[in-house]
Simulated assay, not measured.
Amino acid sequence: MAESAKELDPTTLKAFEHAAAGHHGVMSDPSGELFIKPSATQEIHFYQQTFSEHEEFSELIPTFMGTIKLGAPDVAAIQQLPEVSEAQKQQALSHGKKIKADTAIVLENLEYGFQHPNVLDLKLGSKLYEEGTEPEKAARLDKVAAETTSGSLNFRLAGMKVWNGGSYDIYDKFYGRKFNADNVKDGFATFFSGLVTGLAKDDALHLLELIRAEIMKIRDALEHTESRMFSSSILVVYEGDSKTLNALMTGETRTSGLDGRAPTDSEVQENSDGEDEDEDDPPVAFQVRIIDFAHASWTPGQGQDDNTIKGLKNIEKQMDQLLAQLG
């Protein structure tokens, strides 16, 4: 891993340009290996508690490396950001309001190492806010849920980006809000289209099954813990570069570990020449994690989080439909 959280200099941070959804204002380190997100106390505490008290669940979320203070030095970082187009500004606005916080959590960047990561953010739950939320905000979120698949399926497409071979097709939160329970399968088909067209049928089926298995693993973990994770998301990333994806899904790499990064072009060549892979950092074709814990907490004695679990079950059903169509 690159710099530790303690060694990060806030003045060297840059804007994170490839978020599929979520708040703008998030950043990365110069290497792109770390994801830096301004966060309130509740999210920081959730990460700290998870990694100290819920070791098994910590494997299902982005690796937490600590926190850094932003504050005044953040001004210097903002001044160093490259100029962005008006379209990029509008895209950032579509992701949500900037988080107001002077402390940021430092996480692994789940997109790091992929040649062209395809990214899907699935917002979980029909109730999207915790108790004590301001009535005006609660009413607004209830309206969003009632008008989208958040209300009917306990999840909705919050955003995604798909590599089309030359650039990214970006689908913002308004794209996801147009679906209903009957046609949301079309959004999944669009996201996984590169996987289906870029791989042999058996390899595409295998990768879809692996992704579904990771989603089921998260659901199973929540069914055996007591928590409330309002407005958390499932993040799915898979390699959008067809040449790299095919290299990953052939030979021994087809069944390599589920965690890690996709290889660089030179590593793909090395693997094809028969050189050993780094056993400590195996290449993978995809990542699946549950993310976004600004309104999450561990709640002993309150039972499982049915609000979130129902959404995960319905996502699994969407994956089952894709598998049935491809099979």
Rank of each mutant, 00 (worst) to 15 (best):
I68A: 02
E111H: 11
L81Y: 04
M27N: 09
Q49W: 13
E56S: 15
E59I: 09
T50P: 05
G71L: 04
G66F: 01
A104Y: 05
A76W: 13
S94T: 08
Q115I: 15
S94Y: 08
Q49L: 14
K97S: 14
T67K: 01
E111D: 12
Q88K: 03
I78E: 09
K100W: 02
F46G: 04
I36Y: 04
K89F: 09
V75Y: 14
Q80N: 12
I61R: 01
E56M: 12
H95Q: 10
L81K: 02
Q48M: 09
S28W: 03
T67F: 04
A72M: 04
Q90H: 08
L70F: 07
L93T: 11
Q88C: 05
Q90L: 08
E86T: 13
V84E: 07
K37F: 06
F64L: 07
E33Q: 15
A104C: 11
Q91L: 13
E83Y: 06
S58E: 04
V84N: 08
E111T: 15
A76T: 15
G66E: 01
L93Y: 11
K89Q: 05
H95R: 05
P82N: 02
S52M: 12
L81H: 04
K97Q: 13
L93S: 10
P30H: 13
S85A: 10
F51D: 07
E43D: 12
F64M: 08
P38A: 03
E55F: 14
F46S: 02
E53K: 14
T50N: 05
P30Q: 11
T103W: 07
T63M: 08
T103N: 09
M27E: 08
E108N: 12
D102G: 07
N109R: 00
V26E: 00
Q48D: 09
K100E: 03
P30L: 11
F57E: 05
I68Y: 02
E111P: 10
